[in-house]
Amino acid sequence: MEESKKILEGFIPVAKSNAKMFGPNCEVVIHDLTHPQNSVMFTVNNHVTGREVGQSFDHLVKTVLQAEDFKEDYLASYTSTTEDGRTICSSTSLIRDSGKKVIGAYCVNFDVEALSQMQKFMDNFLPAQAEPRVEEAKTDDDVENVEEIVDQLIQQIIKNSVHPAMKRHEKVELIRFMDEKGIFLMKGSVEKIASLLGISKVTVYSYLDEIKNK
């Protein structure tokens, strides 16, 4: 069993413990980022968001890594809305191996819809002025950390997909996957992907245009 798999499987008891402690509204998902295209390796209480083993990550790049508050490999208490309108409060922590390479993500998703409704009810009786929040700017180290994580994701995605007889439509679908996951939001991603695929930047942009036009 490879090291990364052993490390990630070591978090399964923690996931079960967290889910049991906080009840059925608490979902825990463990991602294996050495297999980005089907990164979900374990879920508990997955009725909260419907995450299934074998699916890919969704919010990691677009929401977590892009957030101003993402520091020290984690982002806590960010919210999203499900397709049926429920509010989900989430936290994501990255998992690294002994060589400090990012190999996974530990995600906790809590359905706070009932709490939100209760808070709205209480706010009608106990209005309060919220203290203004002061956000700290990302440091150069924070920016470099995010860039390194996305670089690893790009390399792993392409490593898992590229083969000598790769057809044009397969490359287009690979670009589509990375576009959907927010990879192209990162500066320099086009150049890196073009180099790893052995194609020009112009070709990558033409694939992106083709995807958007469809």
Rank of each mutant, 00 (worst) to 15 (best):
K159I: 01
K181M: 03
A137V: 10
D73S: 06
S17R: 02
F177I: 08
G85I: 12
D151L: 14
L8S: 08
V14R: 12
T43S: 04
T139E: 03
D123F: 05
L174Y: 03
S80N: 06
N18E: 07
N38A: 07
N109D: 11
V172Y: 03
F125T: 15
M122H: 08
D69F: 06
E2P: 15
L208N: 06
P13I: 11
E170T: 05
K138F: 02
A114I: 13
L153V: 04
K20G: 02
A114R: 10
K167R: 14
L8N: 03
E173Y: 01
S80D: 09
E173W: 01
A137E: 12
I175Y: 07
G54F: 01
Q129M: 10
F42C: 02
D209F: 08
I103Y: 10
I211Q: 14
P127D: 15
S91F: 00
F11T: 11
A194P: 09
S4V: 11
E147P: 09
K187D: 10
E83W: 06
K20T: 13
F22T: 04
M186I: 15
T79K: 00
V112M: 13
T82S: 15
C89S: 11
H163R: 06
V162N: 10
K192Q: 13
Q119E: 15
E68H: 10
S98F: 06
A165Y: 05
V28Y: 07
E3N: 15
F110C: 06
S200W: 14
E83R: 13
E3V: 14
G99K: 11
S200F: 13
E210H: 00
F110H: 12
R168A: 05
F70H: 00
S56Q: 09
M122P: 02
I158M: 09
A130Y: 05
H169D: 04
N213V: 09
A15S: 08
E136K: 07
E170A: 04
T92K: 00
G188L: 13
G188E: 10
K181F: 03
E135N: 07
T82A: 10
H59E: 09
V48Y: 11
V172D: 07
L75A: 08
S4P: 04
G50A: 04
V40Y: 05
A165T: 09
R168P: 00
Q152I: 12
K187W: 07
A137M: 01
K201I: 11
K62N: 10
V134A: 05
A194E: 03
A105Y: 06
S206P: 01
S56R: 12
I157P: 07
R168Q: 05
L60F: 05
E147A: 14
F22K: 11
H35W: 04
D141V: 10
I103S: 07
R176Q: 10
F22I: 08
E113R: 08
E144R: 09
T139M: 03
A67I: 01
A194H: 00
I157D: 12
G188C: 15
E113L: 10
K6G: 05
Y106G: 08
D73Q: 04
V44F: 06
Q55T: 07
P24G: 13
V204K: 12
A128T: 15
T49I: 01
M178A: 03
D84F: 02
C107D: 01
R96L: 02
V190F: 15
K138N: 10
G198D: 01
E170R: 08
A130Q: 09
L65R: 02
C26Y: 01
S189Q: 11
V44G: 03
R86K: 15
R133L: 13
V53M: 05
K159P: 01
Y207T: 06
E9C: 00
